[in-house]
Design a protein around this nucleic acid. Structure first.
Length: 478
RNA sequence: GGCCCCAUCGUCUAGCGGUUAGGACACCGGCCUCUCACGUCGGUAACACGGGUUCAAUUCCCGUUGGGGUCGCCA
């Protein structure tokens, strides 16, 4: 049987980084096994679901490269892939359970139950409210709104062999007669997910550990439908450094934010893959390597804490390694960031030419754009503190001489420039460190930049000389 | 509180009875050096605790402690 896995987000906001990991592990498994990766939108919470959020999720997954074989915008043999478009199916399947005596109609109102719950909580705050089965023995069928409840067993237990946690056993007494269908006919999570997973032929359900508690009732449903129970794999939680659930107040948690911060999609996947899974000592992976190496055996059971520094380091690694990010792709991704900061005169060829200057330095595309800004912006943005420190009167004569040296360079290459400058320094009994910082500030506006000769070459003779000219002519007085 | 789950450096992790407990990020030094990086060399740093099992436990079992998940007509 071929593998069929799914990612089933609810469109109630941005795509959370933890959700991406769930999607990734499913995707990796599908790609590794040659199976199908199904995307299903679980929008049955009409209060919170939005079309905008669906769009964001689709965009984010596309950006990441987690392409789905079946799902929204793609279709497939088991569609539609949006739950609110499948209501007829849930109703039909719920009715079947009622007919078979495995579920029943419950006419208790939400308000009544909330009152009972509140009453219990008032008496014992830690007590667990369980539906008292008021409607279980009811034989009449009043013309009132009703929900459909599952008749869960009182005795026995459910066991399943989790792909990462091993054998998990839960007593059935822990379950209550949970609701399958709301009074408006919209399914609740456990029911909708199981009906869809059965109908869509899902063979393995991989999701966050926070869903582990849903597995026993879901297995009961598979049994009630006499359906084949899929494999389950639960992934440990991603927590904030504080140990709390990772949320907005711990920094960026949506993929969109990392995209905006200039992360490489594959670096995001790389970091996420190594969170809760390992492959010996290997830290850096291409997508192909990930697909080839991924397995459930090396998934970890314990929760982890998100480490923004390591994430950045992984991104840096991806940006500076040609094997992981090709030159063309780098420029494609970088260009929008340069444009966004209003860098003038952007020409793809020129960006390509100066890319080596910052390739090993930039940790994100935003950082890369910042480091390359001076190349394109004439005059460059000058840091006043840097100018005050290095462009004093003492440096003016040196810069004037440097201009002359540059005029004398014949072939405009890094090597030729360096050779001429070195010869001049030797002749004048000077050292490069005597001129490097003043020249750097004049050329780039900053005290930190790529190598001096590379910078000069990249600017071109005319622009380099122009930038050296004004501080050489009118030095700022101390 | 009930039910479920977890436990190796600060963090992500390797380890699947016998290791000087390894790697990565972070941190601290040295080297390289025109700045910033990169690179490189080295350093600090972990098996939660208590019982078993065993010739031998980080590794297997039990308990304690600690942490997390979940108890909705949310997903």
């Amino acid at each position: 049987m071929t593998t069929r896995v799914r990612f089933a987000p609810s469109p109630t906001g941005y795509l959370h980084i933890g959700g991406v990991r769930t999607a990734l592990f499913n995707w990796l498994w599908a790609r590794k096994t040659g199976g199908a990766f199904v995307l299903r939108i679980e929008d049955t919470d009409q209060e919170r679901s939005t079309a905008e959020s669906v769009r964001v999720i689709l965009d984010s997954l596309s950006w990441l490269g987690l392409d789905w074989d079946e799902g929204p915008g793609k279709g497939g043999p088991f569609g539609p892939y949006t739950q609110m478009e499948r209501l007829g199916l849930y109703k039909e399947w719920a009715e079947r359970l009622v007919r078979e005596g495995k579920a029943y109609r419950c006419y208790c109102t939400k308000e009544e139950l909330e009152e009972q719950r509140a009453l219990l909580k008032a008496r014992d705050p830690k007590a667990t409210f369980r539906y008292p089965r008021t409607c279980l023995k009811r034989t009449d069928q009043p013309d009132l709104p009703f929900v459909v409840r599952f008749k869960s067993p009182d005795a026995g237990s459910i066991s399943y062999r989790d792909k990462v946690f091993g054998l998990v056993t839960t007593p059935n007494a822990a379950q209550q007669d949970f609701v399958l269908l709301r009074s408006d006919g919209v399914p609740l999570y456990n029911f909708g997910a199981v009906v869809d997973d059965i109908q869509m032929g899902i063979t393995l359900v991989a999701r966050g550990r926070d869903h582990m508690v849903n597995t026993p009732p879901q297995i009961m449903l598979y049994e009630a439908f006499d359906a084949k129970i899929p494999d389950f794999a639960h992934l440990p939680m991603m927590l904030a450094q504080s140990g709390e659930k990772l949320s907005k107040r711990h920094g960026a948690v949506s993929v969109g934010e990392y995209q905006a911060q200039g992360y490489s999609p594959r670096a995001v996947l790389n970091y996420l893959a190594r969170f809760g899974w390992s492959h010996g000592d290997q830290e850096v992976f291409s997508l192909d390597e990930l697909v080839a190496a991924f397995d459930w055996e090396h998934c970890n059971k314990s929760d982890g804490k998100f480490d923004a520094k390591k994430f950045l380091a992984i991104n840096h690694e991806h940006l500076k390694t040609p094997r992981l990010t090709g030159e063309d792709e780098y420029v494609d991704r970088l260009l929008p960031f340069l444009a966004a900061r209003g860098v003038p005169g952007l020409v793809r060829e020129r960006v390509l030419h100066v890319l080596p200057l910052i390739r090993e330095r930039a940790t994100t595309f935003v950082d890369a754009a910042d480091r390359l800004d001076f190349v394109f912006r004439d005059p460059p943005v000058v840091d006043p503190a840097a100018a005050a420190k290095f462009l004093g009167p003492a440096s003016a004569p040196l810069l004037r001489e440097l201009i002359e040296v540059l005029r004398g360079v014949e072939l405009w290459t890094v090597q030729a420039i360096e050779a001429r400058v070195q010869a001049w320094l030797e002749d004048k009994k000077l050292q490069i460190k005597d001129v490097a910082q003043p020249a750097r500030v004049a050329l780039t506006g900053r005290t930190a930049s790529p190598g001096l000769y590379e910078v000069i070459e990249a600017l071109g003779r005319d622009r380099a000389i122009a930038r050296l000219t004004s501080p050489a002519a009118s030095p700022t007085s101390p």
